Simulated assay, not measured.
Amino acid sequence: MSAPSPDRLDPLRAPAHWQAVEFVSDLHLQSGEPQTFELWRAFLQRPVSQRADALFILGDLFEVWVGDDVLDTSTSPDQTFWRACADALEAFSLQTPVYFMAGNRDFLLGAQGLKACGMQGLSDPTTFDFLGQHWLLSHGDALCLADTDYMRFREQVRQPTWQREFLARSLSERTTIARDLREQSEARKRNTAHDPSLWADVDAAAARAALQAAGAHTLIHGHTHRPAVHALGNDLQRVVLSDWDAGANPPRAEVLRLDTHGLRRIPLPLS
């Protein structure tokens, strides 16, 4: 199975006045983990003077998204939480543009959900022209080629026919299916937690090929929850975003900022 081909995509070009942008991914927002949501909301409520010119969310903003009707008061048991998420983002987006790329948990976020959150959707991958250079943005899951079981699953659930049939089910049925899939995923993680060599990671050759096709030098992605910088040879690199978990020990929450000084990781205050 091959990686996606960014050379077929038109690049996103930053306006000339932009001086800084910020990237986050893998917040996995859910009603059962209010600490992470409150940290996220505080981040969004910063004064405009403290913000970058744009915010990029590279997937898995939500732990699960089973359809845009979760925002409908008549159907969603967690509607208050989802509406709070949408309202916080929409308020932020009134003064700072927000770009969203789907992850493996929230790929069903559709036009209604994007509009409610004030976000602009991005294809995966996207080439980004900023500060005179090409950057390649991705969630990262499509490059984890060694995880063959997941890659087959990903190919299936990204099909329009599968998505139409899934979204035609009742909300309660979709929620049950999503919960079962999450439990299976967590069981797999527990079974491999003792041996990091078993953890799926981005394929280096696929990352190099994607960068070369895009004419970019740096791939920025999430998904793996292992923040690091990986040299890929020939001055190419991939930069991995941090996940967020304010309730972990130690807690995790980090923003990647790109400006005229380069890339910087900014830990968020957790109290």
Score class of each variant (00 low, 15 high):
P11G: 04
A204F: 08
S138W: 08
T96M: 06
A193H: 11
R226E: 05
T148C: 15
T175Y: 07
L109D: 03
M101T: 02
H230I: 09
R179C: 11
L256I: 03
W40H: 03
Q79C: 13
D69W: 09
D141I: 01
P196R: 07
Q95Y: 11
D149N: 11
T192P: 03
F23W: 04
P77V: 15
L145V: 03
R154T: 05
E33R: 14
R164W: 14
R105M: 02
E173F: 15
D235C: 12
D147F: 05
S138I: 07
S197K: 09
T36L: 06
L171A: 11
S5G: 15
Q133F: 06
L27H: 05
A207F: 00
C85H: 02
E186C: 13
P125I: 00
V48Q: 14
L167G: 04
V239N: 09
L12A: 07
A142M: 15
D10G: 10
I266K: 13
S74N: 09
D201K: 05
D201C: 02
D53H: 08
T80M: 14
Y99I: 04
L137E: 02
L9D: 13
R13C: 11
D106G: 02
V229W: 13
A204G: 09
W135P: 00
L268A: 01
F153P: 01
D129A: 14
A204Q: 09
V202K: 00
G140S: 07
D7M: 12
D141F: 01
V229R: 14
S93T: 10
A14P: 05
F128G: 00
Q237A: 10
N249M: 13
Q184M: 10
D69C: 06
G32L: 13
D106C: 07
A214K: 05
H139Y: 02
F37G: 03
A42F: 14
G110L: 10
L29H: 00
P269C: 09
D78K: 14
A214H: 02
R41P: 02
S25I: 04
A116Q: 06
L236Y: 07
C85Q: 05
L137W: 09
P34N: 15
E186R: 11
T126F: 04
V98Q: 06
A111W: 15
D195H: 12
P267D: 15
P250Y: 15
D201V: 03
M151I: 07
E173Y: 14
A3N: 00
F92Y: 11
A193Q: 13
N191V: 11
E155S: 14
H194G: 08
A14S: 10
W82C: 01
L109V: 12
L167Y: 04
L109W: 08
P11M: 11
L219M: 10
C117I: 13
S76P: 01
Q35H: 09
L219W: 00
P97V: 15
A178W: 03
Y150N: 00
Q30E: 11
Q30G: 04
G215R: 04
A86L: 01
A205L: 10
A52N: 04
L256M: 04
H194P: 01
A16N: 12
H134C: 09
P15E: 08
P47R: 05
H225C: 00
G247R: 12
L236C: 03
P227G: 10
L270R: 05
F128A: 00
P160A: 08
E33V: 08
H225A: 04
F100Y: 12
H134I: 03
H230L: 07
R46L: 14
R188C: 06
A246M: 12
G140Q: 06
L145R: 02
